[in-house]
């Protein structure tokens, strides 16, 4: 059930990024949004990094209040806040075993 809700939020985020970057900003976790806005207006930053097409969701794993959504051309990390799942990091790619993903959008 939580996998479905986290997957929905991740899918809405990547879709919004391609079609309407401003609404994608509303799906970012507060600290991630703060970090993105340090580089400029959120919609412009997300729009610049948006993929050409909406990626396809392949899998979602949820542990506690944290989730990872794997798309065919992207990986998104999420956390469940009081108002629902928010994106904590996006445009992530693996950087070897037991190493953190390298993410273009993340907090801190």
């Amino acid at each position: 059930m939580e996998e479905g809700a986290a997957g929905d939020s991740a899918r809405r985020f990547v879709t919004a990024q391609v079609q309407d970057a401003a609404s994608a900003c509303a799906l970012l976790a507060p600290k991630t949004l703060q970090e993105v806005e340090a580089d400029g207006h959120c919609a412009a930053v997300l729009g610049d990094g948006a993929p050409a097409a909406v990626p396809r969701l392949e899998s979602v794993e949820v542990y506690g209040t944290n989730a990872i959504a794997r798309f065919d051309a992207d990986t998104v990390f999420l956390a469940r806040f009081r108002d629902g799942w928010r994106v904590t990091a996006a445009h992530c790619r693996p950087d070897g075993p037991q190493r953190p993903y390298q993410c273009e959008i993340q907090a801190g």
Binding site: E61, Y63, T65, Y101
Partner: peptide
């Protein structure tokens, strides 16, 4: 619990 911490640290479960 370990996997929740992994995800917080942007690592694979």
């Amino acid at each position: 619990a370990y996997n929740a911490d992994q995800l917080k640290d942007l690592q694979a479960p």
